[in-house]
Design a protein around this nucleic acid. Structure first.
Lengths: 243, 243
DNA sequence: TGAATATTTTTGGCATACCAAATACCAGAA
DNA sequence: TTCTGGTATTTGGTATGCCAAAAATATTCA
Protein backbone atom coordinates (compact mmCIF):
# COMPACT_ATOMS: atom_id res chain seq x y z
CA UNK A 1 0.00 0.00 0.00
CA UNK A 2 2.48 2.58 1.11
CA UNK A 3 5.24 1.95 -1.42
CA UNK A 4 2.89 2.51 -4.29
CA UNK A 5 2.18 5.99 -3.19
CA UNK A 6 5.83 6.68 -2.63
CA UNK A 7 6.83 5.72 -6.13
CA UNK A 8 3.94 7.29 -7.85
CA UNK A 9 4.30 10.94 -8.80
CA UNK A 10 7.91 11.93 -8.10
CA UNK A 11 7.63 15.57 -9.17
CA UNK A 12 4.62 16.08 -6.98
CA UNK A 13 6.10 14.27 -3.98
CA UNK A 14 9.17 16.40 -4.17
CA UNK A 15 7.52 19.33 -2.57
CA UNK A 16 5.78 17.09 -0.07
CA UNK A 17 9.15 15.85 1.15
CA UNK A 18 10.11 19.29 2.33
CA UNK A 19 10.22 19.76 6.03
CA UNK A 20 6.56 19.45 6.73
CA UNK A 21 6.69 18.55 10.36
CA UNK A 22 2.99 18.66 10.98
CA UNK A 23 3.24 22.30 11.80
CA UNK A 24 2.51 23.60 15.22
CA UNK A 25 -0.92 22.24 16.07
CA UNK A 26 -1.52 25.86 16.93
CA UNK A 27 -1.92 25.43 20.60
CA UNK A 28 -5.47 25.87 21.70
CA UNK A 29 -6.65 28.75 23.83
CA UNK A 30 -7.02 26.26 26.62
CA UNK A 31 -3.33 25.44 26.54
CA UNK A 32 -2.31 29.03 26.02
CA UNK A 33 -4.37 30.04 29.03
CA UNK A 34 -2.86 27.18 31.02
CA UNK A 35 0.67 28.27 30.23
CA UNK A 36 -0.08 31.91 30.85
CA UNK A 37 -1.74 31.30 34.20
CA UNK A 38 0.90 28.85 35.29
CA UNK A 39 3.66 31.29 34.51
CA UNK A 40 1.83 34.07 36.27
CA UNK A 41 1.33 31.95 39.36
CA UNK A 42 4.96 30.86 39.44
CA UNK A 43 6.13 34.40 38.94
CA UNK A 44 4.14 35.96 41.74
CA UNK A 45 5.30 35.72 45.31
CA UNK A 46 2.51 33.67 46.82
CA UNK A 47 4.00 33.85 50.27
CA UNK A 48 4.30 37.61 50.33
CA UNK A 49 0.83 38.48 51.55
CA UNK A 50 -1.23 37.12 54.42
CA UNK A 51 -4.46 37.26 52.41
CA UNK A 52 -5.08 34.39 50.04
CA UNK A 53 -4.51 35.17 46.38
CA UNK A 54 -7.69 34.79 44.39
CA UNK A 55 -8.34 34.43 40.68
CA UNK A 56 -11.47 35.52 38.86
CA UNK A 57 -12.64 33.61 35.80
CA UNK A 58 -14.37 36.51 34.13
CA UNK A 59 -11.55 38.93 34.79
CA UNK A 60 -9.07 36.43 33.39
CA UNK A 61 -11.16 35.74 30.30
CA UNK A 62 -11.36 39.45 29.61
CA UNK A 63 -7.67 39.88 30.37
CA UNK A 64 -6.63 37.12 27.98
CA UNK A 65 -9.24 37.95 25.41
CA UNK A 66 -10.96 34.59 25.36
CA UNK A 67 -14.20 33.27 26.73
CA UNK A 68 -14.56 31.63 30.11
CA UNK A 69 -14.69 28.14 28.67
CA UNK A 70 -10.98 27.69 27.87
CA UNK A 71 -10.12 29.58 31.03
CA UNK A 72 -12.11 27.16 33.11
CA UNK A 73 -10.49 24.20 31.41
CA UNK A 74 -7.08 25.67 32.10
CA UNK A 75 -7.99 26.18 35.74
CA UNK A 76 -9.19 22.59 35.98
CA UNK A 77 -5.73 21.58 34.77
CA UNK A 78 -3.95 23.83 37.23
CA UNK A 79 -6.06 22.37 39.99
CA UNK A 80 -4.87 18.90 39.05
CA UNK A 81 -1.32 20.21 39.27
CA UNK A 82 -2.07 21.44 42.75
CA UNK A 83 -1.40 25.08 41.96
CA UNK A 84 -4.91 26.33 42.60
CA UNK A 85 -8.04 25.17 44.33
CA UNK A 86 -11.49 26.26 43.30
CA UNK A 87 -14.13 26.62 45.96
CA UNK A 88 -17.67 26.52 44.57
CA UNK A 89 -19.42 29.87 44.71
CA UNK A 90 -16.44 31.28 46.52
CA UNK A 91 -13.61 31.66 44.11
CA UNK A 92 -10.34 30.24 42.90
CA UNK A 93 -7.49 30.45 45.34
CA UNK A 94 -3.81 30.02 44.60
CA UNK A 95 -2.55 27.23 46.83
CA UNK A 96 -0.02 28.09 49.48
CA UNK A 97 2.03 25.20 50.77
CA UNK A 98 2.97 24.79 54.37
CA UNK A 99 6.52 24.40 55.53
CA UNK A 100 5.89 20.73 56.24
CA UNK A 101 4.72 20.19 52.68
CA UNK A 102 7.78 21.93 51.29
CA UNK A 103 10.05 19.80 53.44
CA UNK A 104 8.23 16.66 52.33
CA UNK A 105 8.60 17.64 48.71
CA UNK A 106 12.32 18.22 49.08
CA UNK A 107 12.62 14.80 50.67
CA UNK A 108 10.79 13.24 47.74
CA UNK A 109 13.15 15.11 45.49
CA UNK A 110 16.10 13.71 47.39
CA UNK A 111 14.72 10.22 46.93
CA UNK A 112 14.26 10.64 43.20
CA UNK A 113 17.62 12.30 42.60
CA UNK A 114 19.25 9.59 44.63
CA UNK A 115 17.69 6.98 42.38
CA UNK A 116 18.85 8.95 39.35
CA UNK A 117 22.39 8.85 40.67
CA UNK A 118 22.11 5.11 41.13
CA UNK A 119 20.97 4.60 37.56
CA UNK A 120 23.66 6.89 36.20
CA UNK A 121 26.45 4.79 37.67
CA UNK A 122 25.31 1.85 35.59
CA UNK A 123 24.30 3.41 32.30
CA UNK A 124 25.67 6.90 31.68
CA UNK A 125 28.71 7.52 29.54
CA UNK A 126 31.88 8.72 31.19
CA UNK A 127 32.07 11.88 29.13
CA UNK A 128 28.53 12.88 30.02
CA UNK A 129 29.23 12.48 33.70
CA UNK A 130 32.44 14.46 33.49
CA UNK A 131 30.59 17.19 31.62
CA UNK A 132 28.66 17.88 34.80
CA UNK A 133 31.74 19.66 36.12
CA UNK A 134 31.30 22.34 33.50
CA UNK A 135 28.44 23.86 35.41
CA UNK A 136 30.93 24.87 38.08
CA UNK A 137 33.96 25.63 35.96
CA UNK A 138 33.62 29.33 36.77
CA UNK A 139 33.94 28.69 40.47
CA UNK A 140 36.93 27.70 42.57
CA UNK A 141 39.31 28.85 45.26
CA UNK A 142 39.85 32.14 43.49
CA UNK A 143 36.18 32.66 42.76
CA UNK A 144 34.02 31.44 45.60
CA UNK A 145 30.38 30.53 45.06
CA UNK A 146 29.33 32.57 48.07
CA UNK A 147 30.67 35.68 46.36
CA UNK A 148 28.54 35.16 43.28
CA UNK A 149 25.37 33.78 44.72
CA UNK A 150 22.96 34.52 41.90
CA UNK A 151 25.23 32.99 39.31
CA UNK A 152 26.00 29.97 41.44
CA UNK A 153 22.34 29.45 42.22
CA UNK A 154 21.53 29.11 38.53
CA UNK A 155 24.44 26.76 37.98
CA UNK A 156 23.21 24.79 40.95
CA UNK A 157 19.74 24.20 39.54
CA UNK A 158 21.09 23.51 36.07
CA UNK A 159 23.44 20.93 37.56
CA UNK A 160 20.68 19.10 39.37
CA UNK A 161 18.49 19.02 36.30
CA UNK A 162 21.34 17.84 34.10
CA UNK A 163 22.19 15.18 36.64
CA UNK A 164 18.70 13.78 36.66
CA UNK A 165 18.54 13.90 32.87
CA UNK A 166 21.55 11.63 32.74
CA UNK A 167 19.44 8.90 34.29
CA UNK A 168 17.61 8.78 30.96
CA UNK A 169 14.42 8.27 32.91
CA UNK A 170 11.74 10.64 31.69
CA UNK A 171 9.65 9.76 34.70
CA UNK A 172 12.31 10.92 37.13
CA UNK A 173 12.89 14.07 35.09
CA UNK A 174 9.22 14.95 35.02
CA UNK A 175 8.59 14.22 38.67
CA UNK A 176 11.52 16.25 39.90
CA UNK A 177 10.66 19.16 37.61
CA UNK A 178 7.16 19.12 39.03
CA UNK A 179 8.51 19.26 42.53
CA UNK A 180 10.87 22.05 41.64
CA UNK A 181 7.99 24.14 40.34
CA UNK A 182 6.10 23.76 43.58
CA UNK A 183 9.05 24.43 45.78
CA UNK A 184 10.83 27.25 44.01
CA UNK A 185 8.64 30.05 45.34
CA UNK A 186 9.29 29.24 48.94
CA UNK A 187 11.56 31.95 50.24
CA UNK A 188 13.25 29.90 52.92
CA UNK A 189 14.42 27.55 50.21
CA UNK A 190 16.34 30.28 48.46
CA UNK A 191 17.81 31.48 51.70
CA UNK A 192 18.74 27.91 52.53
CA UNK A 193 20.58 27.55 49.27
CA UNK A 194 22.51 30.71 49.90
CA UNK A 195 23.48 29.78 53.43
CA UNK A 196 24.71 26.47 52.16
CA UNK A 197 26.71 27.60 49.14
CA UNK A 198 29.97 27.05 50.94
CA UNK A 199 29.42 23.33 51.43
CA UNK A 200 27.35 22.91 48.29
CA UNK A 201 30.15 22.93 45.74
CA UNK A 202 32.35 20.29 47.39
CA UNK A 203 29.31 18.07 47.80
CA UNK A 204 28.47 18.38 44.14
CA UNK A 205 32.00 17.51 43.13
CA UNK A 206 31.94 14.50 45.44
CA UNK A 207 28.80 13.28 43.77
CA UNK A 208 30.38 13.61 40.34
CA UNK A 209 33.43 11.70 41.50
CA UNK A 210 31.32 8.87 42.85
CA UNK A 211 29.43 8.72 39.57
CA UNK A 212 32.66 8.56 37.59
CA UNK A 213 33.95 5.84 39.89
CA UNK A 214 30.72 3.93 39.20
CA UNK A 215 30.31 3.64 42.95
CA UNK A 216 26.56 3.06 42.97
CA UNK A 217 26.04 2.97 46.72
CA UNK A 218 28.18 6.02 47.39
CA UNK A 219 26.72 8.13 44.60
CA UNK A 220 23.26 7.26 45.78
CA UNK A 221 24.08 8.17 49.35
CA UNK A 222 25.84 11.43 48.52
CA UNK A 223 23.06 12.61 46.23
CA UNK A 224 20.46 11.76 48.81
CA UNK A 225 22.24 13.36 51.75
CA UNK A 226 23.03 16.48 49.79
CA UNK A 227 19.40 17.27 49.06
CA UNK A 228 18.25 15.92 52.37
CA UNK A 229 20.52 18.51 53.92
CA UNK A 230 18.49 21.22 52.27
CA UNK A 231 15.32 19.67 53.65
CA UNK A 232 16.74 19.71 57.13
CA UNK A 233 17.81 23.30 56.73
CA UNK A 234 14.34 24.40 55.71
CA UNK A 235 12.78 22.38 58.49
CA UNK A 236 15.07 23.96 61.06
CA UNK A 237 15.35 27.53 59.89
CA UNK A 238 12.19 28.01 57.88
CA UNK A 239 9.34 29.60 59.70
CA UNK A 240 5.74 28.89 59.07
CA UNK A 241 4.46 31.66 56.83
CA UNK A 242 0.84 32.51 57.56
CA UNK A 243 -0.89 29.35 58.65
CA UNK B 1 -15.27 40.17 70.72
CA UNK B 2 -15.91 36.49 70.61
CA UNK B 3 -16.83 35.89 74.23
CA UNK B 4 -19.63 38.39 74.03
CA UNK B 5 -21.37 36.40 71.36
CA UNK B 6 -20.87 33.20 73.26
CA UNK B 7 -22.52 34.49 76.41
CA UNK B 8 -25.26 36.40 74.76
CA UNK B 9 -28.45 34.51 73.91
CA UNK B 10 -28.15 31.00 75.38
CA UNK B 11 -31.61 29.75 74.41
CA UNK B 12 -31.12 30.77 70.80
CA UNK B 13 -27.61 29.35 70.56
CA UNK B 14 -28.91 26.04 71.80
CA UNK B 15 -30.44 25.11 68.49
CA UNK B 16 -27.38 26.37 66.63
CA UNK B 17 -25.29 23.85 68.50
CA UNK B 18 -27.12 20.98 66.87
CA UNK B 19 -25.05 18.92 64.52
CA UNK B 20 -24.78 21.33 61.64
CA UNK B 21 -21.79 20.01 59.80
CA UNK B 22 -21.66 22.20 56.75
CA UNK B 23 -23.54 19.77 54.56
CA UNK B 24 -21.97 17.93 51.68
CA UNK B 25 -20.72 20.44 49.08
CA UNK B 26 -22.48 18.20 46.56
CA UNK B 27 -19.68 17.42 44.18
CA UNK B 28 -20.04 19.09 40.82
CA UNK B 29 -20.76 17.24 37.60
CA UNK B 30 -17.22 18.01 36.58
CA UNK B 31 -15.83 16.05 39.51
CA UNK B 32 -18.38 13.30 39.18
CA UNK B 33 -17.47 12.91 35.54
CA UNK B 34 -13.79 12.92 36.46
CA UNK B 35 -14.24 10.15 38.99
CA UNK B 36 -16.47 8.13 36.69
CA UNK B 37 -14.11 8.35 33.74
CA UNK B 38 -11.06 7.67 35.85
CA UNK B 39 -12.61 4.57 37.32
CA UNK B 40 -13.71 3.40 33.90
CA UNK B 41 -10.24 3.88 32.48
CA UNK B 42 -8.60 2.07 35.38
CA UNK B 43 -11.07 -0.75 35.14
CA UNK B 44 -10.68 -1.43 31.47
CA UNK B 45 -7.75 -3.44 30.17
CA UNK B 46 -5.94 -0.85 28.11
CA UNK B 47 -3.32 -3.28 26.99
CA UNK B 48 -5.78 -5.88 25.72
CA UNK B 49 -6.34 -4.55 22.23
CA UNK B 50 -3.90 -3.38 19.57
CA UNK B 51 -6.15 -0.51 18.50
CA UNK B 52 -5.98 2.62 20.60
CA UNK B 53 -8.94 3.14 22.92
CA UNK B 54 -10.81 6.31 22.05
CA UNK B 55 -13.28 8.40 23.99
CA UNK B 56 -15.99 10.56 22.52
CA UNK B 57 -17.12 13.71 24.27
CA UNK B 58 -20.67 13.68 22.95
CA UNK B 59 -21.15 9.99 23.61
CA UNK B 60 -19.87 10.41 27.15
CA UNK B 61 -22.05 13.43 27.85
CA UNK B 62 -25.08 11.50 26.70
CA UNK B 63 -23.96 8.43 28.63
CA UNK B 64 -23.51 10.35 31.87
CA UNK B 65 -26.50 12.56 31.31
CA UNK B 66 -24.68 15.88 31.45
CA UNK B 67 -23.60 18.39 28.86
CA UNK B 68 -20.24 18.39 27.18
CA UNK B 69 -18.87 21.22 29.29
CA UNK B 70 -18.24 19.31 32.54
CA UNK B 71 -17.12 16.33 30.46
CA UNK B 72 -14.50 18.42 28.73
CA UNK B 73 -13.27 19.81 32.03
CA UNK B 74 -13.00 16.31 33.43
CA UNK B 75 -11.04 15.23 30.39
CA UNK B 76 -8.71 18.18 30.79
CA UNK B 77 -8.06 16.94 34.32
CA UNK B 78 -7.47 13.38 33.20
CA UNK B 79 -5.04 14.66 30.61
CA UNK B 80 -3.05 16.39 33.33
CA UNK B 81 -2.97 13.08 35.16
CA UNK B 82 -1.56 11.48 32.06
CA UNK B 83 -4.42 9.05 31.62
CA UNK B 84 -5.65 10.39 28.31
CA UNK B 85 -4.39 12.58 25.52
CA UNK B 86 -6.66 14.63 23.34
CA UNK B 87 -5.67 15.16 19.73
CA UNK B 88 -7.41 18.13 18.14
CA UNK B 89 -9.99 17.16 15.58
CA UNK B 90 -8.98 13.57 16.00
CA UNK B 91 -10.25 12.34 19.30
CA UNK B 92 -9.37 11.52 22.84
CA UNK B 93 -7.13 8.52 23.28
CA UNK B 94 -6.50 6.56 26.45
CA UNK B 95 -2.77 6.60 27.04
CA UNK B 96 -0.92 3.34 26.85
CA UNK B 97 2.43 3.27 28.59
CA UNK B 98 5.44 1.51 27.18
CA UNK B 99 7.35 -1.10 29.10
CA UNK B 100 10.18 1.35 29.61
CA UNK B 101 7.80 3.85 31.20
CA UNK B 102 6.38 1.22 33.50
CA UNK B 103 9.86 0.19 34.57
CA UNK B 104 10.79 3.81 35.19
CA UNK B 105 7.70 4.32 37.28
CA UNK B 106 8.46 1.30 39.41
CA UNK B 107 11.96 2.63 39.95
CA UNK B 108 10.56 5.97 41.08
CA UNK B 109 8.28 4.06 43.37
CA UNK B 110 11.26 2.21 44.78
CA UNK B 111 12.98 5.50 45.43
CA UNK B 112 10.00 6.96 47.24
CA UNK B 113 9.26 3.88 49.30
CA UNK B 114 12.90 3.70 50.22
CA UNK B 115 12.74 7.25 51.51
CA UNK B 116 9.58 6.39 53.41
CA UNK B 117 11.41 3.53 55.11
CA UNK B 118 14.21 5.90 56.04
CA UNK B 119 11.80 8.35 57.64
CA UNK B 120 9.95 5.62 59.46
CA UNK B 121 13.08 4.47 61.29
CA UNK B 122 13.36 7.88 62.89
CA UNK B 123 9.76 8.82 63.62
CA UNK B 124 7.29 5.93 63.62
CA UNK B 125 6.12 4.27 66.80
CA UNK B 126 7.22 0.74 67.54
CA UNK B 127 3.68 -0.60 67.73
CA UNK B 128 2.77 0.86 64.35
CA UNK B 129 5.77 -0.77 62.72
CA UNK B 130 5.05 -4.10 64.31
CA UNK B 131 1.46 -3.86 63.16
CA UNK B 132 2.73 -4.18 59.60
CA UNK B 133 3.18 -7.88 60.25
CA UNK B 134 -0.56 -8.29 60.54
CA UNK B 135 -0.96 -8.03 56.80
CA UNK B 136 0.81 -11.35 56.51
CA UNK B 137 -0.43 -13.10 59.62
CA UNK B 138 -2.45 -15.50 57.49
CA UNK B 139 0.62 -16.73 55.68
CA UNK B 140 3.48 -18.92 56.85
CA UNK B 141 5.15 -22.27 56.40
CA UNK B 142 1.83 -24.04 56.62
CA UNK B 143 0.07 -21.62 54.32
CA UNK B 144 2.34 -20.45 51.56
CA UNK B 145 1.69 -17.18 49.71
CA UNK B 146 2.14 -18.90 46.35
CA UNK B 147 -0.81 -21.12 47.15
CA UNK B 148 -3.13 -18.19 47.77
CA UNK B 149 -1.95 -15.71 45.20
CA UNK B 150 -5.01 -13.48 44.99
CA UNK B 151 -5.22 -13.08 48.72
CA UNK B 152 -1.51 -12.50 49.09
CA UNK B 153 -1.50 -9.97 46.28
CA UNK B 154 -4.03 -7.82 48.09
CA UNK B 155 -2.12 -8.10 51.35
CA UNK B 156 0.98 -7.14 49.43
CA UNK B 157 -0.42 -3.88 48.11
CA UNK B 158 -2.05 -3.06 51.43
CA UNK B 159 1.30 -3.59 53.13
CA UNK B 160 3.15 -1.24 50.81
CA UNK B 161 0.54 1.45 51.21
CA UNK B 162 0.50 1.10 54.97
CA UNK B 163 4.27 1.23 55.01
CA UNK B 164 4.40 4.48 53.12
CA UNK B 165 1.65 5.95 55.27
CA UNK B 166 3.83 5.37 58.32
CA UNK B 167 6.26 7.93 56.95
CA UNK B 168 3.58 10.50 57.74
CA UNK B 169 4.50 12.26 54.53
CA UNK B 170 1.41 13.05 52.51
CA UNK B 171 3.60 13.89 49.56
CA UNK B 172 5.13 10.43 49.49
CA UNK B 173 1.72 8.84 49.92
CA UNK B 174 0.19 10.82 47.09
CA UNK B 175 3.06 10.30 44.69
CA UNK B 176 3.23 6.56 45.21
CA UNK B 177 -0.53 6.20 44.90
CA UNK B 178 -0.35 8.07 41.62
CA UNK B 179 2.30 5.73 40.36
CA UNK B 180 0.34 2.71 41.48
CA UNK B 181 -2.67 3.86 39.48
CA UNK B 182 -0.60 4.15 36.34
CA UNK B 183 1.17 0.89 36.78
CA UNK B 184 -1.56 -1.42 38.04
CA UNK B 185 -3.05 -2.19 34.63
CA UNK B 186 0.15 -3.52 33.19
CA UNK B 187 -0.25 -7.24 32.93
CA UNK B 188 3.41 -8.13 33.27
CA UNK B 189 3.41 -6.40 36.63
CA UNK B 190 0.80 -8.75 37.99
CA UNK B 191 2.60 -11.75 36.57
CA UNK B 192 5.82 -10.46 38.07
CA UNK B 193 4.23 -10.24 41.47
CA UNK B 194 3.00 -13.78 41.22
CA UNK B 195 6.31 -15.19 40.08
CA UNK B 196 7.99 -13.48 42.98
CA UNK B 197 5.60 -14.39 45.77
CA UNK B 198 8.02 -16.95 47.15
CA UNK B 199 10.75 -14.43 47.86
CA UNK B 200 8.34 -11.58 48.53
CA UNK B 201 7.24 -12.53 52.02
CA UNK B 202 10.72 -12.97 53.53
CA UNK B 203 11.78 -9.67 52.03
CA UNK B 204 8.82 -7.92 53.57
CA UNK B 205 9.56 -9.37 56.96
CA UNK B 206 13.17 -8.32 56.64
CA UNK B 207 12.09 -4.76 55.95
CA UNK B 208 9.88 -4.76 59.02
CA UNK B 209 12.70 -6.07 61.15
CA UNK B 210 15.05 -3.37 59.93
CA UNK B 211 12.44 -0.76 60.70
CA UNK B 212 11.94 -2.10 64.20
CA UNK B 213 15.69 -2.13 64.73
CA UNK B 214 15.73 1.51 63.63
CA UNK B 215 18.42 0.57 61.17
CA UNK B 216 17.95 3.46 58.77
CA UNK B 217 20.47 2.46 56.15
CA UNK B 218 19.39 -1.17 56.07
CA UNK B 219 15.67 -0.44 55.97
CA UNK B 220 16.23 2.00 53.19
CA UNK B 221 18.30 -0.49 51.22
CA UNK B 222 15.93 -3.40 51.70
CA UNK B 223 12.88 -1.38 50.74
CA UNK B 224 14.63 -0.08 47.67
CA UNK B 225 16.01 -3.40 46.50
CA UNK B 226 12.72 -5.15 47.06
CA UNK B 227 10.79 -2.91 44.69
CA UNK B 228 13.73 -2.54 42.36
CA UNK B 229 13.58 -6.29 42.01
CA UNK B 230 10.11 -5.98 40.58
CA UNK B 231 11.36 -3.37 38.13
CA UNK B 232 14.10 -5.70 36.98
CA UNK B 233 11.62 -8.53 36.61
CA UNK B 234 9.33 -6.48 34.40
CA UNK B 235 12.26 -5.20 32.39
CA UNK B 236 13.53 -8.73 31.82
CA UNK B 237 10.35 -10.71 31.36
CA UNK B 238 7.88 -8.10 30.21
CA UNK B 239 7.33 -7.85 26.52
CA UNK B 240 6.53 -4.72 24.67
CA UNK B 241 2.78 -4.73 24.13
CA UNK B 242 1.85 -3.05 20.87
CA UNK B 243 4.38 -0.27 20.69
C1' DT C 1 -12.32 0.97 -13.47
C1' DG C 2 -9.79 4.00 -10.76
C1' DA C 3 -8.31 8.05 -9.09
C1' DA C 4 -8.98 12.86 -8.32
C1' DT C 5 -12.42 15.77 -6.39
C1' DA C 6 -16.48 17.41 -4.20
C1' DT C 7 -19.57 16.76 -0.29
C1' DT C 8 -21.16 15.21 4.00
C1' DT C 9 -20.18 13.91 8.62
C1' DT C 10 -17.59 13.76 12.67
C1' DT C 11 -15.03 15.90 16.35
C1' DG C 12 -12.82 18.98 19.39
C1' DG C 13 -12.58 24.22 20.36
C1' DC C 14 -14.85 28.16 21.72
C1' DA C 15 -18.43 31.73 22.86
C1' DT C 16 -22.59 32.84 25.10
C1' DA C 17 -26.55 32.66 28.10
C1' DC C 18 -28.65 31.31 32.19
C1' DC C 19 -28.83 29.20 36.85
C1' DA C 20 -28.26 28.86 41.80
C1' DA C 21 -25.62 29.47 45.78
C1' DA C 22 -22.95 32.64 48.51
C1' DT C 23 -21.98 37.18 49.57
C1' DA C 24 -22.24 42.09 49.85
C1' DC C 25 -24.98 45.82 50.60
C1' DC C 26 -28.73 48.59 52.33
C1' DA C 27 -32.83 50.10 54.52
C1' DG C 28 -35.77 49.78 58.42
C1' DA C 29 -36.74 48.45 63.19
C1' DA C 30 -35.36 48.22 68.12
C1' DT D 1 -26.11 52.85 67.01
C1' DT D 2 -26.89 48.08 66.29
C1' DC D 3 -29.16 44.26 64.69
C1' DT D 4 -32.35 42.10 61.43
C1' DG D 5 -34.29 41.04 56.72
C1' DG D 6 -34.30 41.40 52.39
C1' DT D 7 -32.44 42.62 47.87
C1' DA D 8 -28.84 43.20 44.41
C1' DT D 9 -24.52 41.38 42.95
C1' DT D 10 -20.90 38.25 42.41
C1' DT D 11 -19.16 33.78 41.15
C1' DG D 12 -18.57 29.16 39.79
C1' DG D 13 -21.46 25.42 37.28
C1' DT D 14 -23.83 23.89 33.31
C1' DA D 15 -26.29 23.70 28.86
C1' DT D 16 -26.36 24.98 24.00
C1' DG D 17 -25.10 26.35 19.62
C1' DC D 18 -21.91 27.26 16.11
C1' DC D 19 -17.32 26.98 13.94
C1' DA D 20 -13.47 24.93 11.44
C1' DA D 21 -10.46 21.17 10.64
C1' DA D 22 -10.18 16.47 9.48
C1' DA D 23 -12.03 12.23 8.14
C1' DA D 24 -15.32 9.55 5.79
C1' DT D 25 -18.15 9.11 1.93
C1' DA D 26 -20.05 10.11 -2.41
C1' DT D 27 -19.34 11.68 -7.09
C1' DT D 28 -17.46 12.77 -11.35
C1' DC D 29 -14.38 12.35 -15.06
C1' DA D 30 -10.70 10.24 -17.85
Amino acid sequence: MSERKQTKAPPVMAEADIAIVRIAPETSFKNKAYEALKEAILKMDIYATPEPVMLDERALSERLGVSRTPIREAIAMLEQDGFVKTVPRRGIVVVRRTKAEIVDMIRAWAALESMAARLITTTARKKDITALRDFFKDFGKDRLPQDHIEEYSKANIAFHQALISLSESQVLVDMTNDILLHVRGYRQLTIGRKDRTATSLPEHLAIIEALEARDTELAEKLARDHTLGLATYVETHGQELFS
